[in-house]
Amino acid sequence: MPLTPPPLVFTLDPPVDPALRDGVVTLWADVSDAGGAVGFVPPVDPDDVRAELVKHLASMAEGRTRLLVGYDEDGAVAATAFLALNTHRLMRHWLWLYTVMVHPRHQGKGYGRDLMDAAADAARGIDGIEAIRLTCRGGLGLERFYEACGYKEVGRVPDAIRVAPGDDRDDITMLLSLR
């Protein structure tokens, strides 16, 4: 009988310190280099990832974004998702979920679903939030994973993401109702 891996420990809005910053940069670069669809294509320069993370951290400091982190049994950053609140007065009842990542060494253990469940729980804990939207890159089967987590495809823009010359992918919008 296979051993069950220890669960990740999820923390919403952990203190941002150098260990967290470095852990997120490492996770993001490793996921990207493994072919993950998180805003980069391999090979990834960690300095490019760090510059993008600074934008996320600024949004967090302004209270527009929340960070969910999953830590493994060694205390390392193993998974993340960012929850971006809407500032538009007509759209404050839903939020965006983005940069959803599980470290490649932890994939296949059910941690992706655990991360999505933790993100939904975090969103439910934010006053007035009734739904989560996310986008994913077509051509990788990601929409099937998100559908298995309860999301529904609500939109698709063909060839909106140019991964490389001659390699355009659909931008797929998914929605999870929390009601």
Rank of each mutant, 00 (worst) to 15 (best):
E153C: 12
A37W: 01
R21M: 12
E52N: 08
V102K: 10
L90F: 11
P2Y: 09
V69Q: 06
R124T: 01
R92D: 00
P2T: 12
E52G: 08
Y151S: 00
G36T: 06
I129A: 00
V54S: 11
K109W: 12
A120M: 01
L68K: 12
G155W: 06
L142D: 10
V163C: 11
A123W: 00
P46W: 11
A81I: 00
H88Y: 12
P6K: 07
Y71I: 04
P5V: 03
R66S: 13
G141C: 05
V25A: 05
F145G: 03
V24K: 07
Y111A: 08
D47R: 13
M174C: 04
A131F: 03
D167M: 11
R137D: 10
E147R: 15
V16Q: 06
P104H: 09
C149M: 05
G70E: 02
Y146I: 00
D45P: 00
S177N: 10
A84N: 11
A61D: 15
C136K: 01
E153T: 15
A76Q: 14
L67G: 05
R113D: 02
V24A: 09
R89G: 01
G141N: 05
L142S: 08
V157E: 14
R169A: 10
R137C: 12
A58V: 13
P15E: 15
L142T: 06
M174A: 04
V38T: 12
A148T: 13
T173V: 15
D22E: 15
V163S: 13
G155R: 06
I129M: 02
M91F: 13
G39P: 04
P7E: 04
G150A: 07
R137Y: 11
L175R: 14
S32Q: 04
G166M: 09
Y151D: 01
S177R: 13
G110V: 07
L134R: 03
G75C: 06
L176Q: 02
M116A: 10
R89F: 06
L97P: 00
S32T: 10
G138Q: 11
A19H: 12
V38D: 08
V44P: 04
G155L: 08
K109D: 11
T11D: 02
K152D: 13
N86H: 10
Y98S: 13
R156F: 07
G108E: 10
Y71A: 07
M116I: 15
D33M: 04
R113M: 09
I126Q: 04
T4W: 08
G70Y: 00
S32N: 01
H103A: 15
V69M: 07
H106A: 14
L140F: 14
F145K: 04
A84T: 15
D22K: 00
I129Y: 02
G139A: 09
G112W: 00
A84V: 14
T26Q: 14
L8P: 03
I161P: 05
E153W: 02
R169F: 01
Y98M: 09
G110I: 08
A164M: 07
A61G: 15
R124V: 02
A29G: 06
N86M: 08
A79T: 02
P43A: 06
